[in-house]
Design a protein around this nucleic acid. Structure first.
Lengths: 152, 152
DNA sequence: GCTTCACTGCAATAGTATAATGTTTCATAT
DNA sequence: ATATGAAACATTATACTATTGCAGTGAAGC
């Protein structure tokens, strides 16, 4: 998972879109955790960066982060976890993006899952109601294996 | 659907919990639309109420609305639509609460769907990863039947 | 009557996201 | 090299969503 950045750069090159420093840094920060990260956590980190770089005047503002996140989501490199208003790196940027998450209520970790049967069922359910599905959000909250065993 | 309030009062009585004026009013406002309602829309309505009632001093504040929403969600009378940070009345308050939504990107309407097969599949997927599922969020965004035909 | 506990009122603040506007950067074609 | 146009970025302000903490109130049970 550590070379997510390399993979991302390759993908962007293929697609002819630019991965700028701000976008790269946001992607990097999103990937540094295995749990969803809030936009303002990213913002704080980047503001700290700027200070360290001796550019106290150049303050990073929310739109910088949100624009980068929008771009990364468009490119399928990052997903938003709706139930937490937080963001997480996509673990298979090359493939389809019809996926779900298993989110641990204890440790906050989120595992991305992809399942053909689930995608099919969601489409079927939608069309059963005459509904044309475009995208879907599936988030399951509960206890991950390690937190479950600790709780026992 | 119009007697959702009556049903709610019955349910609360059975369970020995109180449905106070604030909670009743919030439930009423949530039910008045077929689309998800934001907490601050509810808040504005209730502030207008208070003014009309000639109680200009008694301002309704956010916690009043959020506390009522929390209560109503605990009782399964209202669901939160995570992808919109909005709330919607539950169409089968007596039954299970493992449900999903079909959300129209055009008109904003949201249809609640419940499906045993989907619930089962979600549980199966979770346990396949050693995950203990507690609750799930399923939201499908797309075009509802009437907006779909208009777009054609 | 008194206690207790859930509920509410109120003020402040935290956290998430976008609008509006102007400026910079960069690839490309001259 | 340089003009140009599109994409990206900076900046400020503001809108929207949600929570915390504490004080007061009122009804149910003793």
């Amino acid at each position: 998972m550590n070379d997510a950045l390399g993979a991302a750069e390759r993908l962007c090159a293929e697609r002819g879109v630019r991965i700028t420093p701000a976008r790269r840094r946001v992607l990097e920060l999103v990937w540094q955790r295995h749990a969803p990260v809030g936009a303002y956590d990213i913002l704080s980190e980047m503001q700290r960066d700027a200070e360290k770089d001796g550019k106290p005047g150049a303050k990073v503002a929310p739109p910088t982060v949100y624009r980068a996140l929008d771009f990364l989501m468009e490119q399928g490199l990052v997903h938003k976890v709706e139930s937490q208003n937080a963001y997480i790196g996509c673990s298979h940027p090359e493939g389809s993006h019809d996926c779900g998450f298993l989110i641990c209520r204890e440790c906050g970790s989120a595992l991305e899952i992809e399942d053909g049967e689930l995608s099919d069922l969601l489409k079927t359910l939608a069309s059963k109601h005459g509904f044309e599905a475009r995208s879907s959000t599936v988030e399951i909250e509960g206890l991950c294996p390690s937190c479950k065993s600790q709780a026992a």
